[in-house]
Simulated assay, not measured.
Amino acid sequence: MPFSPMPERLDTERFVLTPEEPSDVPWLAELFTARGAGPVTHDAAWQRMAAMHELTRRHGIGVYVLRPRDGTAPVGYVGLVVGRCTVEEPELAYELLPAAHGRGYATEAARVVLDAVLATGRDRVWATVRESNAASLRVLAKLGGFEVRRVTTDEHGRVLWHVREQDARAGSR
């Protein structure tokens, strides 16, 4: 079944969400480095951004940069990835710079992205979260409608596979 593409721009109260741009490379490298797996170069961040643009071009889904309406620097991204899932049933992904944690930004942006992806004709969206990631689990709880469907384990521990069905959307607000 063909799906309509995600919009180029989404808006929330505090953010304008748009695709990554070349000027985003420095803060993306900082964000990827903050994951703790070692430094990420600007070239590596550029390559990751190019791969995301290709996903968006080919499948109409991708990530959005959270650009504050006040013109300050971006704080992270929220969007849809294939990752552990599929184009038909993508995975909701969000990641913020450490200084932006705890302010409701991920929830605010994820809500509008989730509404937009369900409007493309998709019936199911996944979110895989490590059992130890309390902040991401809180985001999913605030969004509503997500339920744990399965649990897997990898070299870093347990991963909870949350799913949100299209008809769960009505009860999420």
Results as ranks from 00 to 15, higher is better:
59 H>R: 02
78 V>R: 08
113 V>D: 07
79 G>R: 03
67 R>I: 02
78 V>A: 14
65 V>N: 03
22 P>W: 02
79 G>Y: 12
102 G>D: 05
54 E>A: 15
33 T>Q: 06
75 V>L: 13
126 W>D: 04
40 V>C: 12
18 T>D: 11
14 R>K: 07
113 V>E: 04
27 W>G: 01
11 D>P: 00
79 G>F: 10
93 A>I: 13
33 T>F: 11
107 T>Y: 04
21 E>M: 14
66 L>V: 01
57 R>Q: 14
131 E>Y: 05
103 R>T: 07
47 Q>A: 15
28 L>I: 15
55 L>R: 13
108 E>G: 04
44 A>H: 05
14 R>D: 11
25 V>R: 12
58 R>V: 06
37 A>N: 12
51 A>W: 01
130 R>H: 12
50 A>F: 04
112 V>Q: 02
116 A>P: 05
38 G>L: 08
118 L>M: 15
59 H>S: 09
119 A>L: 07
63 V>C: 14
129 V>D: 01
65 V>K: 10
72 T>Q: 11
119 A>F: 06
124 R>A: 03
84 R>N: 08
31 L>P: 03
128 T>C: 13
11 D>H: 07
56 T>L: 09
117 V>R: 01
73 A>C: 02
12 T>A: 09
104 G>N: 05
115 D>V: 14
15 F>V: 11
16 V>L: 13
45 A>N: 03
40 V>H: 12
117 V>L: 07
23 S>G: 08
126 W>A: 10
18 T>Q: 11
74 P>H: 11
